[in-house]
Amino acid sequence: MGIFKRLFGLFYKRRTKVKILAVGLDNSGKTTLLKKLRPKKADLSTVPTVGYEFESFSKNGVAFDCVDMSGQSKYRNLWEHYFTDTDGVIFVVDATDKLRFVVVREELETMLSHQEFSRRKIPLLFFANKMDLHDAVTPNELLATLQLDDLAHPWRIFASNALRGEGLEEGVGWLVDAIAEHKTTAK
């Protein structure tokens, strides 16, 4: 019996599929980060994304369907078209780009003001990326600058280094839990 249950559980877990949206300003490292999450070792020389790209991978027994949005300013207004059916959002911030934190804040606000976000408590996972660089701010500082405390959504911030994959596991792990929790509460 135990074996069956485990097998079934495994099977069931395999089938769990979540849809994630990866957003953030240009050159914050979204594509690199997602590629790193993929088990297949892809080459990490990325070019700026035009429009969007699909990434699929599984982590912790959950299949991820991830839409990697382009962060360039002229494409940002397209993000909203993918909000509707997303289970969670990965928001990548370039921790060294202090100048544009205000832009990040603005984009975040725009996103949160979308009706889809007021309707559902979509979990938000922040990555303070490029922590390996010496002028990167710490997650705590970033948290303060972006005023994340006021968020009504479940959220968490992690420091990450997308190039080497540091901090990603923890972040994604949290996100999976948060989504599962959100789904059960929603039910």
Binding site: T49, V50, G51, Y52, E53, S70
Partner: peptide, 13 residues
Amino acid sequence: ETEVFIVTSTLTK
């Protein structure tokens, strides 16, 4: 025009 180019990269791929 402002929306359609979102598929450009997919198409080039």
